[in-house]
């Protein structure tokens, strides 16, 4: 059986990298019974993921629940806790376990015509700016691109104005001074060429992007598989999941950091202790508010603690982490009924 796989991103993107690995794992786990062809972004881009899955154009797609926010209000709760993000692998596995076990989330994926098979995470976002940000006071009056509500709250707390700009417009907006900077992954320095316009990188840990659904599988495809095929498919997806985090939060940031350090026009700022404390205090307060209000948020926060400890013990090797997740998460799932 040949499955159509849609990473909904160009080849340079970490999602595409993950899908190339997944296609290999799938052939391996199924002994060549199941294979995949990857559809390029000219066929399925992010806005088309929902229709592609529901119409059968793609069997598996990289869906971002926050992009389809109206369809995933409960799953999105985990995204509202972005400021928790300090350890990418822990965030990714916490999101995976959360998505698999949270009933309202499972209902949302079902209504979307799909099945959830794990998540990945970005590195920890930092500040990329055109004016130096050394202390909390330096944030006053800055216009910063925000990738989501938690980042907007953080910016507003420190007197900056969060701005909504498409990620592809960051370069232009920064080069022209429409914004003073962005709250983003350091990888954007290379992938959106911000290295040509940013002058300062402030290493203040903000949070992660972890509400992904890496191998959103069409319900029809899933139901059409035998139990054995589902086991093989999940094994491949589970090995594929940490590949996104490995690429997005480790390999690419390492490249970007190297390029930034080699660039003499860019200063890397370590924030002062007072700034760091103030930022972390706000993050804690923000998370406490949300976990107090919402049971699902509390569940997710607990899972982040659990996986932070596991990742500390296992390390960052994707295959080792996948093996552990197989025990911790998938071993407890009944694949004859899961997702249906």
């Amino acid at each position: 059986q040949e499955l159509r796989l849609a990473p909904a991103a160009p080849p340079a993107h970490p999602a595409y990298y993950m899908y190339e690995h997944f296609a290999e794992f799938l052939a391996e786990e199924s002994g060549g019974e199941m294979t995949g062809t990857i559809l390029g972004p000219e066929v399925v881009a992010l806005p088309q993921v929902k229709d592609a899955l529901q119409s059968g154009l793609a069997n598996v797609a990289n869906g971002l629940p926050l992009y389809f926010a109206a369809d995933f209000p409960q799953t999105g709760v985990a995204g509202d806790l972005a400021l928790l993000g300090r350890d990418p692998h822990a965030m990714a596995w916490a999101m995976t376990e959360f998505g698999v076990n949270c009933e309202p989330c499972q209902e949302e994926f079902k209504n979307f015509g799909s099945v959830f098979l794990g998540a990945g995470s970005s590195d920890v976002y930092v500040l990329l700016t055109t004016t130096p940000v050394r202390t909390a006071e330096d944030l006053q009056g800055l216009r910063l691109r925000s990738g989501g509500a938690p980042y907007s709250r953080w910016a507003e707390h420190f007197g900056a104005t969060p701005v909504n700009i498409a990620v592809g417009d960051q370069f232009e907006a920064m080069s022209q001074g429409t914004i003073d900077g962005t709250m983003a992954s350091i990888v954007d320095m290379l992938s959106y060429r911000l290295i040509d316009v940013a002058e300062y990188v402030t290493m203040i840990p903000l949070g992660t992007y972890h509400v992904t659904s890496n191998f959103t599988t069409s319900l029809d495809t899933w139901e059409g598989m035998s139990l054995e095929q589902r086991e093989q498919f999940v094994a491949a997806a589970n090995r594929g999941d940490p590949q996104l985090t490995d690429r997005w939060a480790f390999q690419l940031p390492a490249e970007a950091t190297e390029a930034v350090e080699a660039n003499e026009n860019i200063e890397v700022i370590q924030p002062d202790q007072a700034f760091l404390d103030a930022s972390n205090a706000f993050a804690e307060e923000d998370i406490a508010t949300r976990t107090g209000e919402n049971e699902l948020a509390a569940d997710f926060a607990a899972l982040v603690d659990k996986w932070t400890a596991i990742v500390e013990e296992v390390g960052n090797d994707p295959e080792a982490l996948a093996a552990r997740a197989q025990e911790e998460i998938w071993a407890n799932v009944d694949l004859s009924t899961y997702g249906m």
Binding site: L66, A69, A70, S152, V163, N164
Partner: peptide, 15 residues
């Protein structure tokens, strides 16, 4: 599904 987009901190309905 009442499709909306999330902008900075508000939910903007576009369906």
């Amino acid at each position: 599904s009442g499709t909306f987009v999330e902008l900075v901190s508000l939910q903007f309905e576009v369906w």
